[in-house]
């Protein structure tokens, strides 16, 4: 089967067989918001922020295959409301103190809230979980308070680094990411791992020691651009 076309918010998009809606959208410069998905990593479909309406059904764009003549709604008031709810859930599930977080300005969760215009008083309760900080490793620290369970580090370590230093443990609201050992020092994690790199952790959970706050305000990833800018600029080109 050769390429086919479908629609996202009225724009005609060409896709190759086997491509997901998100992959096809990325290629043509249509940004579909996402947190657990990251280029080069297996799709997970866990955060659900990429929810779109495809052929009338709400699906995760990162895992849903594109199909000929599919009509996809991406940036509608309704879909963005769902996304605001989801991002709000992630904020209130953990302990996200933007003012003191070194990821602030480079944080995808925060940037997603900006993009979605999340400024209304939260309807959700704060869960204020008690989560440990693991600073055992000489070069890396984990502040689990900020973890949104996206699992990008899990997949990066397993599939790219070939190590498996992280994994999911527990169930339900207690499900969380754990190191493959009593703490990170007792794993073969290295600061040079892809899983530890700045691009993998969307928030400020995985911290490379001695390099915090390196970029001043004004020069950070989302100081001048909305998240998704890098994809959307392709459309203008």
């Amino acid at each position: 089967m050769s390429g086919f076309s479908f629609q996202i918010d009225g724009v005609e998009v060409t896709a190759k067989p086997g491509q997901t809606i998100m992959e096809a959208a990325d290629e043509v410069g249509i940004y579909i918001p996402r947190l657990c998905d990251h280029e080069g990593l297996r799709h997970q479909g866990g955060c659900r922020v990429c929810t779109v309406k495809a052929g009338g059904r709400s699906v995760a764009a990162c895992t849903q295959p594109a199909a000929p003549d599919l009509v996809v709604e991406n940036e509608t008031p309704h879909i963005n409301k769902l996304r605001r709810d989801l991002v709000g859930m992630l904020f209130n599930e953990g302990n996200h103190l933007c003012p003191i977080c070194e990821a602030s300005g480079n944080c995808e969760l925060q940037a997603m809230a900006y993009r979605l215009g999340m400024t209304e008083p939260t309807k959700f309760p704060y869960l204020e979980p008690c989560r440990p900080v693991d600073a055992s490793h000489p070069d890396i620290a984990l502040d689990n308070n900020r973890c949104i369970s996206c699992g990008r580090c899990v997949r990066a370590s397993q599939d790219v680094d070939g190590k498996g230093i992280f994994g999911y443990v527990g169930r339900g609201i207690h499900r969380h990411i754990a190191a493959n050992g009593p703490d990170l020092r007792h794993t073969d994690a290295e600061v040079t791992d892809f899983a530890i790199s700045a691009e993998v952790c969307p928030v400020g959970c995985i911290i490379r020691k001695r390099e915090g706050f390196a970029r001043p305000i004004g020069e950070r990833d989302y100081d001048d651009h909305l998240i998704g800018y890098d994809i959307e600029k392709k459309r203008d080109e």
């Binding site: 955060c47 599930e93 609201i173």
Partner: peptide
């Protein structure tokens, strides 16, 4: 809440909010 697997955000977190 007890039986949600926790894989996706809305079920993992949203059900806790509903319960509350």
């Amino acid at each position: 809440v007890h039986e949600s697997c926790g894989y996706c955000t809305p079920c993992r977190v949203g059900n806790v909010f509903l319960q509350k």
